[in-house]
């Protein structure tokens, strides 16, 4: 109970960055509603929360205010359709610092075929990839702040579609090619 209460206070972001190690990845599991059911030691280390604080907390406690809502909408829309998704995400630590991850989320199913939750692996993103997505994200965020969340996300979605069609790729290919360039 203490842990959940502790995670309800959103930390104040500062500009300190933590860089993920190349050989590690963060692993976490959630239930179908996004409530954390497992986090590995790397997750505990980078998020700054203890295991007891993380378990039972919603995954969005890590959401950084610099992240546009559209990215998480896209993420949830995709995984709810049973598909995997890749995304570059800026996460907020308990101490207010941030760390960029290249997140991969896949749905989990129980043996009887029911959705049992989601599985997320977060790796160190390529430097070039982060500098490519930062201007896109800030444009999306600006739209959401200027036009309100719902209208802003709609305009942001159109902007994203244009960016992708200019690149001649679908979203998946776009982000994977950024990470593997």
């Amino acid at each position: 109970m203490y842990g959940i209460l502790n995670t309800m206070i959103r930390p104040e972001p500062n500009n300190q960055e933590k860089i993920l190690r190349e050989s590690d990845f963060i692993v976490s599991k959630t239930d179908p509603k996004g409530i954390i059911t497992y986090g590995n030691q790397i997750f505990i280390e980078y998020s700054g929360y203890s295991e007891s604080e993380l378990l039972g907390a919603p995954h969005n406690i890590l959401r950084h205010p610099d992240m546009p809502a559209l990215v998480f909408k896209l993420l949830w829309d995709t995984i709810k359709q049973g598909r995997e998704i890749f995304a570059f995400v800026k996460n907020l630590s308990k101490d207010g610092s941030f760390y960029w991850v290249f997140a991969h989320v896949t749905p989990s199913y129980s043996l009887d075929g029911r959705l049992s939750g989601y599985y997320s692996v977060r790796r160190k993103p390529k430097d070039g990839a982060v500098s490519a997505v930062v201007p896109i994200y800030s444009q999306l965020l600006k739209l959401e702040k200027e036009h309100g969340r719902s209208r802003g996300m709609q305009l942001g979605s159109e902007l994203l579609d244009r960016t992708l069609s200019e690149a001649g790729m679908e979203y998946d290919e776009f982000v994977l090619r950024l990470q593997n360039q």
Partner: peptide
Amino acid sequence: ETFFRESRAAFEACSQRKYYRFCITQGMH
């Protein structure tokens, strides 16, 4: 678990001709 998910996803993608999606080895040991 990551090994199984990666291999499964990459083979599924391959069967859908998404050849850019291969197994990500970063963080695996």
